[in-house]
């Protein structure tokens, strides 16, 4: 039983699929956001695996940028959620269906 990169890729696919299901099922905006972060992590794992497979440092560089962009996106996304939730408490993603407000 040798550990090849296929194992890592399958694990990353499983994490990505679980994140997808979570994103589609949950309605709390924060939990949906966290599922997106899980999917991003699965993609990071894939990048690093390919980088190790091909002996290319570009895999790790891509992860670096994905990490930075994810951080920026979380900051802005949470600010939006805070701005919305301040006005109505107890909203779910279903309620935020109009662009106004």
């Amino acid at each position: 039983m040798e550990l090849t990169s296929t194992w890592y890729l399958v694990l990353a696919a499983i994490l990505f699929a679980i994140g997808t299901v979570g994103l589609l099922v949950r309605r709390n905006p924060l939990v949906m956001f966290m599922c997106v972060e899980l999917m991003l992590n699965a993609v990071n794992l894939t990048f690093v695996t390919f980088g190790a497979e091909l002996n290319d440092i570009g895999g790790e560089i891509s992860v670096f940028f994905v990490l930075v962009v994810a951080a920026a996106e979380v900051v802005v996304g949470l600010a939006i959620i805070v701005a919305i939730m301040r006005r109505r408490s107890g909203t779910t993603a279903d309620d935020i269906s109009v662009l106004r407000g």
Binding site: T6, L9, E53, N55, D56, I57, E60
Partner: peptide, 18 residues
């Protein structure tokens, strides 16, 4: 699972080796 090397289709890097 179907592809070899786990689907890595690129060649090994020459300019940015890890």
């Amino acid at each position: 699972a179907v592809s070899a090397d786990g689907g890595a289709t690129g060649a090994e890097s020459l300019t940015a080796p890890k």
